[in-house]
Nucleic acid binder design. Structure first.
Lengths: 171, 171
DNA sequence: TTTGGTAGTTAGGCTACCCTAACGATTAGT
DNA sequence: ACTAATCGTTAGGGTAGCCTAACTACCAAA
């Protein structure tokens, strides 16, 4: 059952979630967020946002004050924090645990943040917390993972076996 | 730097990757793949595929024999195996390590498979192999993660603190 | 005050990805 | 042989998400 439809079952589209998170982060960083700032941060044109924010305003997630500064409503902020949470958790996992390069972790967390459920997010949080709070597990895992990683480094066996090492013919 | 453009930098689009994986899996399962079979497996209409496969044929990744059975070229099979590999690795991680429900793992792996780099995939493979091959790490991790999970069960503290536990105001 | 930069909007266009409806071709059942 | 189902295609439509170009409104400095 592949369900090839690349639809997201959330109420908001990936871009819309992204917009909310970015507004929230701009507010946290500099205390305000204009449409142009947001466009720069997201690397899209103002035109895109002018249209793209409309549904979020219609849903009362985003508003603007008398001077056209963007504001998150309480509902909007709640969503923004959820998205930011998913993003942070993913980036932390990719970067701190898997040791993927910062830039890669950032880029991929931005994409995956729209795809994972609350359950999965919680599980990753559990995982991060375990490594953080349980010194025994944390220390053992990190040292072994490092060693393991070094011992596999360079030309990976996995690249040579046609990727079949972990993928016997499907189900 | 959020780079709000939800573009994928791979040569193939998410759907195209998905199509290739599905063709490969059908072949592995039953030895052939017609367009209609593929449509059923992917839960899209034949019309969608009739058009959607065209670019893959143009790129010589997919072909069809004299009786219109879909075939993967060597290049197509290579891509299909890569995608399948990413999918399998993700599903295994979500399901076997994080203990996310099967259906959820399947669904989310289908989405994330298009977003992660080779590097990230390799790291997850390393992680899975470590848990599998290093009995000490594997056993310790699983038991502690289980216990940790039970001790956090039910109403998660994380849901109550506004998700801020791991997310101090951004960077 | 005129010149010019910045902000936001509108209009029109494009790609990706899905749909339904209608149609021709083949295959299978009676 | 005729009917019915299945297969694949085309035509046309829709949403999401981006773009450029052409505005308008404002604000600020010479």
């Amino acid at each position: 059952m592949l369900s090839g439809k690349h639809h997201h079952e959330r109420e908001l589209s990936p871009s819309q979630e992204h917009y909310l998170r970015a507004i929230w982060e701009l507010h946290a960083e500099r205390g305000y967020a204009r449409l142009a700032d947001l466009a720069r941060a997201l690397d899209v044109t103002p035109a895109t946002l002018s249209v793209g924010l409309r549904p979020l305003e219609a849903r009362k997630l985003v508003a603007h004050d008398d001077q056209r500064f963007l504001l998150l409503t309480p509902a909007g902020e709640r969503v923004a924090r959820e998205v930011h949470h998913r993003f942070t958790v993913l980036r932390s996992f990719l970067s701190d645990v898997l040791r993927v390069p910062e830039a890669t972790a950032e880029r991929e967390a931005c994409l995956i943040e729209h795809d994972i459920s609350g359950t999965t997010t919680e599980r990753i949080v559990d995982f991060l917390k375990l490594l953080q709070e349980d010194r025994e597990v944390g220390a053992l895992f990190r040292s072994r993972f490092d060693a393991f990683h070094r011992s596999c480094g360079g030309t990976r066996a996995c690249s040579d076996c046609g990727l079949a090492c972990l993928t016997p013919p499907p189900r």
